[in-house]
Design a protein around this nucleic acid. Sequence first.
DNA 1: AGTTATCCGTGAACAACGTTCATGGAGTAA
DNA 2: TTACTCCATGAACGTTGTTCACGGATAACT
Lengths: 200, 200
Amino acid sequence: MTPKAQKRKAELAEKLMHAAEQQIIMSGLRSVKARDLARQVGCSVGAIYNVYDDLNALVMAVNGRTFSQIDVVVTASLTGNQGRGPNERLILMSNAYLSFAADNTNLWRALFDLDMSSDGPVPEWYLAALAGLFANIAKPLSELFPDMQPAELDLMTRGLFSSVHGIVLLGLENRISGVGRDAIETMITQLLMQIGNEKK
Amino acid sequence: MTPKAQKRKAELAEKLMHAAEQQIIMSGLRSVKARDLARQVGCSVGAIYNVYDDLNALVMAVNGRTFSQIDVVVTASLTGNQGRGPNERLILMSNAYLSFAADNTNLWRALFDLDMSSDGPVPEWYLAALAGLFANIAKPLSELFPDMQPAELDLMTRGLFSSVHGIVLLGLENRISGVGRDAIETMITQLLMQIGNEKK
DNA sequence: AGTTATCCGTGAACAACGTTCATGGAGTAA
DNA sequence: TTACTCCATGAACGTTGTTCACGGATAACT
């Protein structure tokens, strides 16, 4: 493949991803249609499949960007706050996660709503981004539980992330909870303030 | 409508729901197709829409049954264990929830994968079943926090359920965690054992 | 019992979807 | 300039959920 063709292909991939991202933001994952994308970026329907295997792969690319954004905002929530206690830092990160999910609900939902049954192995960037996120959580936890084994600490990291994720997930799902954003923050704070307390 | 017609309609609704349930169990929510259901229950495609508004409504009926089953197994996990401590009871209920989700993954997933954007108001049985589930959780919590205001207690109930749900959700999602079932139980236990501990 | 009216099961039809493929034109190499 | 390669094209295919005119079956009434 000539460099010229490579460039065109990359540009089309970029335009398609951007169009898909805007579409997800505006109307959700399910509203992403091949013909609409082709019309918006000015290419034919078939051209999409020369760049991406299928629409799932395209959404996966969008999800990659979203994951990076989450990593940015979660990491940013700690800047200037490294002196604070571990519980407080966990709360700061969780609230950053909540803020992103609340402000970019459709984008954030697409991360988990994407069909994963037909896909092959998990992309490496997916696991890498997740590992980075987990590392942020593991650090305050290791201060709270200095004697904990690495394996056990890793499990608690996953568990805590899953817990916060669950609170955000069901909290934003007005079908189930219908609580406001303040309430979601309260739930997260209530939970995280308990972590690491010793038995009296 | 004559009673005869009512009976036929109810029987068809039942057969359709059973067929949809089996289909979800075997191949997941997305594999439920109108023509397949019609063939399985021996009716025409159009007949489905005389009984249910659309396929979403049919799946909602299945979800109602699923919710009842969850309520049964969670409640059953407490029988004979009312003498145990509140933390232990929370763990028992959570493990019952985990067991159901692990043994009926497709059925359990359908509860949350169903599109909720197009649906109207939440069915009353949905809220009722959820309230029953929450009441089970609130009782041990009220023992752990006897001085807590009802509103705050309700929030903590939702938060804890959401946390356990999140752990089960991501724990069963091999794409993200890929941990085994023992690890999920450990995460739940780790989390719930911390609830209610006083600062030393 | 016979006649009329109402209902509802039927399956072809419709619109929209993701994905594919023969074709032809644009771009590249000789 | 010529010949060859590649890929953008959009019509076409197979499925999907949902609808609707039709006609037979059932109910209501005399």
